[in-house]
Design a protein around this nucleic acid. Sequence first.
RNA 1: GCCGGGGUAGCUCAGUCGGCAGAGCAACGCACUCGUAAUGCGUAGGUCAGGGGUUCAAUUCCCCUCCCCGGCUCCA
Length: 643
Amino acid sequence: MSCYTLPDGKELELPDGATGHEIAAAIGPGLAKSALALTCDGHFYDLDASIPFGLVSIITPGTEEGRKILRHSTAHVLAQAVTDLFPDAGYAIGPAVEDGFYYDFAVEQPFTPADLDRIDARMREIMAADQVFARREVSRAEALSLFSDQSYKLEIIEKIIDPDEVGEGETVSVYENDGWRDLCTGPHVPRTGRLRHFKLLRVAGAYWRGDVHRPQLQRVYGTAWESKKALKQYLYRVEEAGKRDHRKLGVELDLFSFPDVVGAGLSLWHPKGGLVRKIMEDYSRAEHEKAGYEFVISPHLAKADLFRTSGHLDWYSESMYPEMSLDNSSYYMKPMNCPFHMLIYKSRTRSYREFPLRFFEFGSVYRYEMSGALHGLTRVRGFTQDDSHIFCTREQLVPELLSLLTFVMKMLRRFGLSDFEATLSTRPEKYVGEIEEWDAATAALEEALRVTGVPYRVDEGGGAFYAPKIDVHLKDAIARKWQLSTLQVDFQLPQRFDLAYTGSDNREHRPHVVHRALFGSVERFFAILLEHYAGALPVWLSPVQAEIVPVADRHMDYARFVHDRLRLAGFRAQVNDHPDTVGAKLRNARLARVPYALVVGDEDIEAGTVGIKTREGNDERGVSLEEFLLRLGRDCAFDEEDS
RNA sequence: GCCGGGGUAGCUCAGUCGGCAGAGCAACGCACUCGUAAUGCGUAGGUCAGGGGUUCAAUUCCCCUCCCCGGCUCCA
């Protein structure tokens, strides 16, 4: 007899060699029916495998593990369908990914949308045939002969690049159904009939092993779920996410544009978008001023020598706009602001008494990004960084990093963002500077993370060669991750620019430099806010905070009076004087995401009130103007405790 | 940069198997003066992304360029 422990602690005794099916059936018939696979002591098994004794857990469809198996098996059927229809196709890898799966194929002709339909139909036939997924272990030599006509599989078997993919040791596992076979660790669902709720989404080129120098394969993406309902919900979610796409909102709300004649990745900011940016930037400047920053300004281009000194021409030239030759000199657009800030530091001798010295600039930089990488405002070729460089002594590094991270997190929270995860990237194999310095700086960064309580993970060896760093990522309202702030201790620039300060010992020392961007890129941050709020920016950021809607023309004077009162109180409002109906005006205000529409008619003139309709759809009549002003004020104020 | 799909009015999109370019919304005008998500009628709006080629004729077919979308790669 074998003894199995269930997740709830119960013990189950079954004859030796019991299969997953039998274990599931012994627990309950419902579970036996829904089971897809199982784990025993953390290892995955197919349902028809004999399970050694241990802690078992049955995997069912509605769980993350279950979906992963469904998706992986669906990917397998996709490859099977493709090789049925295109016998010459080579198949490479096909993992489950977040919300779906993909499979990479080597084919002469890229797939067309019509091909996808045919593949989809064939997949459904395979599923309807309810074929059995049969696993077997084969020796490496046997595997090599089984896949002798599949070069990508051979490469995987030979190199064992990823042990997760082919299993460790001398044997590899192979799954077969209806004569079609794939190299795979499993587990798979027991039969193809268990798969059903999937949709092929798109084809895209993808380099083999993610390497630009290797062949480009055709990647077919799809999604798969445990039920028709879950599939529909997913497709609905994707559609909803599309609606809050900042590129779409940018047009709808008249915020910014990218005219073809300007060039790819170069944005134009319209009055409303410009206004929101101004509010963001004004606020940021005010906070930086309070936090002891000094404001500097630098030009958009400079001579080659500067970027030679900074090292950009050595290690960043691929991302720089090409050289401009004039007056026997060559100039480059700046890809970063740091070199200029270093020069400002160097403009005279510096004393430890000035430290920490904090330079801040909204610096516009230009980077020649690969055309295919551009994406709305989140990936552009010209953008503005809220960049700062802090110069300090070694002793000041820890307290400075701590206050910096505190400052960064406070600012991000002010914008209503709250779901963060930071990455601490440590010393890579190739680095500049002293090991003790790196260790001290990395420890200082980690200390800052611990004290501020930001959840973080460590990316061992993931730092740039010149700096350990903290990157702050945001999870937005629909769970997408974005990189925002970055905080780096720079070991390279002080050296390259030969920076120095006079210490209390009257000797020269090298300052420590911390590089920090908070929004990261103002453009990207703006886009993230727009998507996070689906266009309905918080009241303090809204370009128009209140739109006044006169019921009829005779209420226009009062509407203008209300407008003036709001304006004098420092709020942004406008009167809708179009000859539309009240309903139409309210609809337009709401589509424009204006926080408050103020309806004013006879009763309001009489009583000095307004009718309030919020963009959420709530309405209220007869609110006094004073009361509304107070309400707006409250909306724009921050909680006392975090100011 | 690479693979694939695209570009028709300000927006969303029809359409032309090569023969004078279409709708809805928005804009503008007139009427309506209205109390919480679209008042009615009318007017105007286009080098069909740009350039070249084939053709009696190109928005349509072919080539090049630009730009956009989905991925790969890269990153703020």
